[in-house]
Design a binder for these strands. Structure first.
Ligand code: SF4
Ligand code: SF4
Lengths: 151, 151
DNA sequence: TCATCTCCGACTTGACTGGTCCTGTATTAG
DNA sequence: CTAATACAGGACCAGTCAAGTCGGAGATGA
């Protein structure tokens, strides 16, 4: 199903949230804004911090904020920070994970498809996430029709 | 991690195999060619048949073959036949699967990314899978070095 | 000092996937 | 006719992994 993990989903929500609020926000604040389990959101933010996408401030007035400009952070960065490298096939990451790698006839083509997906994810920045959402909300009704029409 | 299921992987292998062999091949024959559990491969082929990508012939001389030209079947077709619709987020498929859908701020941008991925998968056909592999096999040694060097 | 907040690893649980097994049906070689 | 072969499809099991929880340590400001 090619689904991305819920944690990555939460991470993107948080990043988009922080992109719109220059001041720092606490884990609890973000979690409650979107009905996300507080503890889980905290853990996600921690991991994003460790990967260098966020900076944290401890203590009573603490919180998180983006470590760089939102335009410099891509969706791929966020996803990989949470879920690890994007591996479409079992062989992408560690070759020994698949018993077919010797006889496999689709290994390299699939590897190329992985590259396509990664580049697609790298093309969207966090800032676009936030702005895109704003634009969508502004003309929500019209947009929805157009989007669904494309299906 | 955006990984596709092993069954889908096997399905692609089988499709590529059948694309090179115009005559019908049995489930066992394909399974043994690539060290895939026979029963599992059989089930995958059955599902592909039910979705109309393959035609089956029962009996002693039976087997499977592509129902249309390999150039008319995309990787997206195969994956969706096995794993169901590509849903990057929980809300892609059934909107009620996610408690955040009301307040979510990345719903629509992510939906657009999903479209990008699907179109990437739809751009590669089964015939390209097979041919791509042929080319790779021809210059296998050189290719392998290049691929691993890029990692 | 002390309350409050973040940080971080360990843990539990529940869904899901890969894989197996078993029964039934169609086709054909002999 | 019969036996062997191959597809069809459901039930079932086990290992894995993600989602979510808990408890403690450390930092900070009042
Ligand atoms: S080697 Fe082939 S079968 Fe194994 S994970 Fe890679 S693409 Fe899939
Ligand atoms: S609504 Fe938002 S949080 Fe829920 S699955 Fe969709 S994108 Fe993710």
């Amino acid at each position: 199903m090619l689904r991305l993990s819920k944690k990555a989903d939460y991470a993107l929500i948080a990043m988009a949230h922080l992109a719109l609020k220059p001041g720092s926000s606490s884990a609890r604040e973000i979690a409650e804004s979107y009905d996300i389990p507080t503890e889980l959101m905290a853990k996600v933010l921690q991991r994003l911090t460790r990967r260098g996408l966020l900076t944290s401030q401890q203590g009573t007035r603490g919180g998180y904020q983006l470590s760089r400009a939102a335009t410099g952070i891509t969706v791929a960065d966020v996803i990989q920070a949470i879920d690890g490298p994007v591996s479409v096939t079992a062989c992408s990451a560690h070759a020994d994970r698949c018993g077919q790698f010797a006889k496999c006839n689709v290994r390299d083509p699939l590897w190329r498809i992985r590259e396509l997906i990664v580049s697609a994810l790298s093309r969207t920045t966090v800032s676009e996430l936030a702005n895109d959402n704003d634009a969508v909300n502004a003309v929500r009704s019209a947009q929805l029709v157009a989007v669904h029409g494309r299906v």
